[in-house]
């Protein structure tokens, strides 16, 4: 994501864990304008930021069954911004009453030689895409509305193709582990976007 991580914490052996709370939905192209209008009214009053990002997902195969996944993202319209590396853990299960998807999240801002470095570490790129859209903020809440594009040629961000006629809408917040009021706040905000968009907790395992 083009926006830098919300907090940069001092490291102390991984005892500080940031969790990402996430709600996702989508909106059809023809209703995109109304959604943007509504978001402009609801969110903090700043110029809504547009972004064009290229994200690459890298895998490290290990002895365990599932590979380690890292996501590298860089901005195509702000080439001087640092690259962004993100690790997302498995979504926390169990608490059905929690309204948002919760997973461990580590965000690192890095220099531009990330891909070279990752391949030196043993990572291999699995897939990539281009995301283009708008980002809104309300306090610590972040709303992203974007369109996903597939790259026709690997590594070539010029020739891209639309993935669908809908835009992905994501509502997310980073908070230290254990703050469950966060998901309530998110749900209240999501209520205000109905019926334009139905934001919900989508379990990725269901889609596999």
């Amino acid at each position: 994501m083009e926006a830098p991580p919300v907090t940069v914490l001092p490291v102390s052996g991984g005892t500080i864990n940031m969790m990402e709370y996430l709600l996702q939905g989508s909106v059809l192209d023809q209703s995109l304008e109304s959604l943007l209008h509504r978001l402009r009214g609801l969110c903090d009053n700043m110029e809504p930021d547009t972004f064009v990002d290229h994200e690459m997902v890298f895998l490290l195969k290990g002895q365990q069954g599932s590979p380690f996944i890292l996501r590298a993202r860089h901005s195509l319209d702000r080439p001087n911004a640092p690259w962004h590396l993100r690790y997302l853990g498995q979504p926390e299960v169990g608490d059905k009453s929690r309204h948002a998807l919760v997973r461990n999240c580590v965000d690192v801002a890095v220099s531009h030689n990330l891909t070279e470095f990752l391949s030196e570490m043993g990572f291999r790129m699995d897939h990539e895409f281009v995301a283009k859209g708008h980002i809104f903020r309300k306090g610590a809440l972040k709303v992203v509305v974007c369109k996903l594009y597939r790259l026709l040629l690997p590594g070539n961000t010029e020739s891209t193709e639309n993935l669908s006629l809908s835009n992905l809408v994501e509502l997310s917040m980073l908070a230290p582990a254990g703050q469950d009021t966060v998901s309530d706040d998110m749900r209240n905000f999501a209520e205000q976007l109905k019926p334009l968009v139905h934001l919900e907790k989508i379990d990725p395992k269901r889609l596999m």
Binding site: S26, L35, S164, I202, L207
Partner: peptide
């Protein structure tokens, strides 16, 4: 205004 199948496809992507 939205299509749930599209949502699933985008999230999966």
């Amino acid at each position: 205004t939205f299509n749930p199948a599209d949502t699933n496809a985008l999230v999966a992507a």
